[in-house]
Write a protein that binds this DNA or RNA. Structure first.
Length: 957
DNA sequence: TAATTGCATGGTTGC
DNA sequence: CAACCATGCAATTAA
């Protein structure tokens, strides 16, 4: 790359080879970047004579090859180039050598008089050539800036106008400089520093970057602050600090040639570069490292717990585990979204670090979109990432950016931006060769890291090997819009193991795993060796990662945007080989859950902040006396033991855990149920399961409906599954159906902070559906009012049957149930709560109701998905009216009563219902006032209507 | 005519 | 609701 391309404002520079003298100016550019240097810079070659120079990213000055390194004459530590920009990292000695700041300080400490006079100038590198074009100056012409120096003897700050000095200088934002300078001061220990700006702790910073070897392993800039170690004892630290200081400057007022710090806090030690910066746009060249430093300055908000930002002790235990780490630096004013957090395992870091002493700082990663991986050759960069980690650019043209891949090959991109909605859209242009070389495609993940020291950008990649490859026919069908989203996802699910689920599911499952070593181990072990293809992409097995997931989500965007949230990791799916109904048996309200009563259109709903929990399956029975029991089977002896109704037990339970019944706390104790009773109960139970399974078992994981997985998700995220022990829950008094396994919005809502809360203003699908149902309800009520008179005659009939669709649980009293079973005095029932209050049931199953509406339960219900629900919700009102007979509501009420028999969550009940309608109705009538009965009848009707169809347009509601 | 470039649009998502 | 960002598309340039 010719330097001329860097910009037109390159000042006259000539090759230092007297026989050459090739200019590096625009138009004459015979300069090109060469090989990467371990320093983090790159070689600069004179195309004409081949003389090589090197550039250091910290000072942005080209140095004649190998001429810039300076080794401390005392400790031998490799110092930086020796240019003015790095001048503060060492001191020139009269003897001709250099002295690093550490040695210099030590010497000063040893000297009572402290007469250590840094020899700031002249700099030795008089053969240096200028480097850096205006692209590095962000469009500004090169300008000489006064260099700031500090006489350490008296701590005065002296500004020396180095207008005659041939080195480009630069500045950074005041905030950054002050922050860094404070670091520097701490480093030197020469002053008492008051930290004005927010101090970042480990917790604030998240997990700092890792290095090849340990302790490595924390960013010196941070660890030093955190543990207050004496930096002099840590060469790594000091070196890093020194390097960091290379890039700092002071953001103080320029008083001509003399600058004075007006604040004691802001007094710098050394800042060799000071172009006065007032903001980004006038900020001069910053290396990525500098940039990160600056960005770090804005880090004031601690990461949220739960986003993975907290210190994760498991990382030390499982360094190979892929856990998204919030970048330690440079997240900018706004925190980086977790989706961009690098998910690089320590092993991968080690790989990329190789045998060098370099430190890898994971910055961010991005899943390649179709656009990114397409032929257009543009990789859209997340704005926050670009601004935090890449060099600042002020012009849309941007600047060239060289990024090295894990194989050591350098790729030259154009880092630029487009103005977009008063904002910027950052892109890397020219990525096609890289993409093709690495054989990346949409869904793969590109990871950006930085090598320290040097600040060199490195990119890795992670293949999404399980990327869905749909048959062409399906792809074309998708393109034509003829393939329903469900089909796509079904296909995707089959191929990838993607299933529907709550969006927080994946995150929370992983999050939970992160917090629990055992689960994490199980969950991640298979992929422990990583799916990041840093150096040996093909060597490692891979698992579908979030990249492929996101890719799928993106691909599905145009055909079912609502469904993009119903995706999950294939590996997670593998662990969820159970049907929804099976899962239901394990779900219980959280023991500690306290419901919040929410009024929705005059109806009370209970909302729980806590998700349901896993619990061991149990069977509820009711005796002839009306007494209810809960039975649970011992995992050891398989005997059934009676438990209090409200008890929730862990997934494993044995007789010895039976603290409620001393007589049955041992496996040797006889079973309380007689064989006949037991057989009856189990038969009923199996019957119920069969019927549930009749549709549930048909569902593979991928076909679970959304609500099912929502519940699964919320259950899965509950970390203390099985540890609830006993608690008084299980039933509620407000929501008649709020029982173990309930799938209403109360139960399926995700834990706080993990998703939309179902407050009255919630607009999630579930809530919206509920609201629509209520709107439908209200609409129908209005219509009914006008028809009520003529419907009066059939009203009683309606009442007699009105509870069938939804209210069988409500209407079924223990006594009623009991009379239906004559084989035993113990009858199984679906655990219900207080049936005293009329509530609209949220546990509707439209498909179930649909099927049974016309066939009285003879037909097995179909699974229903959220997409299907949404689909029917969009049907025109007239269809809705026709389908639901709203034109003749009275007739519906009268004639529809017989068709309202339905299968309910507890099939046993529905079966009874058909034979006991009259009794059920009478019981129902007894317990509720007529007014409520009317409403509830309407509710049920409307629920049904709203469930299986069609929601009226807003005007109709 | 194809490829590239620059911008606009609109879906998605976080606040 | 606003910001972000994936992508479409018109304008421009190159072949």
């Amino acid at each position: 790359m010719a330097m001329a391309a860097a910009g037109a404002a390159v000042v006259a520079k000539r090759c230092m080879n007297p026989a050459c003298g090739a200019p590096a100016t625009a138009g004459g550019g015979d300069w090109r970047k060469g090989w990467p240097l371990r320093s983090g810079g790159f070689a600069l070659l004179c195309d004409k004579c081949g003389l090589a120079y090197e550039q250091f990213v910290f000072c942005d000055i080209f140095h004649q090859k190998e001429s810039g390194w300076r080794d401390c004459s005392f400790c031998g530590k490799r110092l930086h180039c020796g240019c003015v920009a790095s001048k503060n990292s060492y001191d020139l000695l009269d003897s001709g050598g250099v002295q690093c700041v550490i040695c210099m300080r030590n010497l000063a400490a040893q000297s009572a008089s402290g007469q250590v006079v840094p020899k700031l100038f002249p700099c030795q590198n008089n053969q240096r050539i200028f480097g850096k074009s205006d692209e590095l100056l962000l469009g500004r012409k090169f300008e000489q800036s006064p260099s700031l120096m500090l006489d350490s003897r008296n701590d005065e700050i002296a500004v020396v106008n180095k207008s005659n000095h041939p080195f480009m200088v630069k500045g950074i934002e005041a905030g950054q400089s002050s922050s860094i300078l404070r670091q520097k001061e701490m480093e030197n220990g020469s002053r008492q520093i008051k930290w004005e700006q927010p101090t970042l702790s480990i917790g604030d910073m998240g997990r700092p970057f890792l290095t090849r070897s340990q302790s490595a392993l924390e960013s010196p800039q941070y660890t030093r602050r955190d543990d207050n170690k004496d930096p002099t004892t840590d060469s790594t630290t000091s070196e890093s600090i020194s390097e960091a200081c290379l890039s700092m400057s002071l953001g103080i007022a320029n008083n001509g040639n003399k600058m004075e710090a007006t604040s004691t806090v802001e007094r710098p030690i050394l800042s060799p570069t000071t172009s006065i910066a007032e903001g980004r746009e006038i900020t001069t060249t910053l290396s990525p490292f500098q940039h990160a430093q600056r960005a770090r300055h804005f880090l004031t908000r601690p990461p949220r717990v739960g986003e993975g930002a907290v210190f994760d002790p498991t990382k030390d235990i499982f360094p190979h585990l892929r856990v998204a780490r919030p970048p330690a630096e440079g997240r900018g004013r706004n925190q980086l979204l977790p989706r961009y957090w690098p998910r690089i395992t320590d092993q991968e870091l080690q790989q990329i670090s190789g045998d060098s002493n370099s430190t890898i700082v994971p910055l961010f990663e991005k899943v390649l979109s179709a656009s990114d991986a397409g032929r257009i050759g543009r990789l859209v960069l997340p704005k926050a990432c670009a601004e935090a980690y890449f060099p600042p650019i002020s012009q849309p043209e941007g600047r060239p950016l060289t990024i090295q891949d894990a194989r050591g090959k350098e790729w030259h991109f154009q880092f630029r931006f487009w103005p977009n909605n008063n904002s910027r859209m950052y892109v890397l242009e020219g990525v096609t060769p890289c993409i093709q070389s690495l054989q990346l495609q949409a869904g793969d993940t590109v990871t950006f890291s930085r090598i320290e020291p040097g600040g060199k950008l490195v990119m890795g990649f992670r293949k999404a090997t399980n990327t869905v490859s749909l048959p062409d026919s399906q792809i074309s069908a998708i393109a034509n819009g003829s393939l329903l989203s469900e089909t796509l996802f079904s296909t995707a699910n089959e191929n990838l193991g993607v299933v529907s689920g709550y969006p927080g599911f994946l995150q929370t499952i992983k999050g939970a795993a992160d917090l629990h070593p055992s689960s994490l181990y199980d969950h991640h072990m298979n992929s422990a060796d990583g799916d990041v293809s840093w150096l040996k992409a093909d060597k490692f097995g891979s698992r579908p990662d979030e990249g492929s997931l996101q890719f799928l989500q993106k691909r599905s965007r145009n055909i079912g945007s609502k469904s993009r949230r119903f995706l999950m990791d294939a590996e997670d799916a593998m662990e969820l080989k159970l049907t929804w109904e099976e899962a239901q048996e394990w779900l219980r309200p959280a023991p500690s859950a306290k419901p919040t009563i929410v009024m929705i259109e005059d109806y009370e709903f209970e909302e729980y902040d806590e998700p349901p929990v896993f619990a061991k399956r149990s069977i509820f029975t009711i005796r002839a006396t009306g007494e209810q029991d809960q039975w649970i089977q011992c995992d050891d002896c398989s005997k059934w033991r009676r438990l209090p109704l409200t008890v929730i037990v862990a997934s494993k339970w044995t007789c010895t855990d039976n603290s409620w019944d001393p007589k049955s706390c041992s496996c040797s104790a006889p079973e309380e149920l007689t064989p006949k009773e037991l057989q009856s109960v189990l038969q009923q139970y199996e019957e119920m399961r069969r019927r549930k399974g009749s549709y549930g078992l048909k569902l593979n994981v991928a076909e679970m409906d959304a609500s099912s997985l929502d519940a699964l998700a919320t259950a899965a995220v509950f970390g203390d599954v099985g540890n609830q022990g006993t608690a008084s829950v299980a039933t509620t008094t407000k929501h008649p159906r709020h029982r173990p396994g309930c799938t209403c919005i109360v139960c399926i809502q995700p834990p706080s902070g993990k998703g939309p809360k179902h407050n009255p203003a919630c607009t999630c699908n579930v809530c919206m559906t509920v609201r629509r149902r209520f709107k439908t309800l209200m609409m129908r009520k209005k219509q009914r009012q006008s028809e009520r008179e003529e419907a009066e005659a059939s009203k009683k009939i309606t009442w007699a049957n009105r509870d069938e669709p939804e209210g069988s649980n409500l209407s079924r009293s223990p006594q009623t149930l009991d009379t239906t079973r004559d084989s035993s005095d113990v009858t199984m029932f679906d655990k219900v709560a207080d049936p005293n209050k009329g509530h609209i049931d949220l546990n509707f199953h439209p498909a179930v109701r649909d099927d049974h509406q016309g066939q009285h339960g003879a037909q097995q219900p179909r699974p229903v998905s959220m997409m299907g629900l949404l689909e029917v919700a969009t049907r025109p009102l007239d269809n809705y009216m026709k389908q639901n007979g709203l034109t003749s509501l009275a007739g519906e009420q009268a004639g529809g009563s017989s068709s309202t028999a339905t299968v309910l969550p507890a099939p046993v009940e529905s079966e009874e219902r058909t034979s006991n309608e009259g009794r059920v109705a009478s019981v129902e009538r007894k317990r509720e006032p007529d007014a409520m009965a009317v409403d509830e009848a309407g509710d049920n009707q409307q629920d049904k209507a709203a469930d299986d169809a069609p929601l009226p347009p807003p005007a109709a509601t």
